[in-house]
């Protein structure tokens, strides 16, 4: 007798864990970069008071949330979207797309161009957040990799960049 196999959609725990770790790291790095980098700070200052956005993977996450608090300070707000008012949701359509993005095989721009991202919210805010993500990537990644991840590698002065980079790493890893 033939047994008709049923296939369940898989969970890919390792890839999911990797993306979750990267999201956690990027979320905390954004918080640090908003303190350290003038351009990132200015981008957030231009957004509405209390502005909050999420970046996550469809259908069930992982997700990270970053938002401005009452004082206008940028904070990483964890992964749980429940009970949070989120103004801008950026969702990668599937885990494989997120892997391409977070192993930096595909830039944010290319991921958008290839229709891997869904953006739900105001477009000007989405533009600002993509610019922030680009700057944070430049801080976090070695130049060789970051050059693939962003359209134009910025010509920052070396000393300033190294100092900021150390502070952003310290913020992201140690929460300083």
């Amino acid at each position: 007798m033939n047994s008709y196999k049923e296939i369940q959609s898989g969970s890919k725990p390792f890839k999911r864990a990797y993306v979750a770790l990267m999201l956690w790291f990027v979320g905390r790095a954004i918080e640090a970069a908003a303190r350290v980098d003038g351009v990132v700070k200015a981008e957030f200052d231009g957004l509405a008071p209390g502005f909050t956005f999420s970046l996550g993977v469809m259908p069930q996450g992982p997700t990270m949330i970053v938002g401005k608090d009452a004082q206008g300070l940028v904070k990483y707000r964890g992964w749980n979207t429940e009970g949070q008012k989120i103004d801008l949701k950026m969702k990668v359509k599937n885990l494989e797309g997120a892997i391409l993005m977070f192993t930096f095989q595909e830039s944010t721009a290319l991921a958008t161009a290839r229709n891997r991202l869904i953006v739900d919210g105001e477009v000007p805010a989405a533009c600002a957040i993509v610019r922030v993500l680009d700057i944070v990537e430049v801080y976090l990644l070695p130049k060789l990799i970051a050059k693939l991840a962003v359209k134009r590698y910025p010509d920052w002065s070396f000393g300033e960049k190294v100092r900021n980079r150390i502070r952003i790493y310290a913020g992201a890893v140690l929460g300083l």
Partner: peptide
């Protein structure tokens, strides 16, 4: 212009 989404698809920044 900084707030218009069409910029994502432009080759250069």
């Amino acid at each position: 212009a900084l707030g218009d989404g069409s910029i994502f698809y432009n080759p250069e920044e």
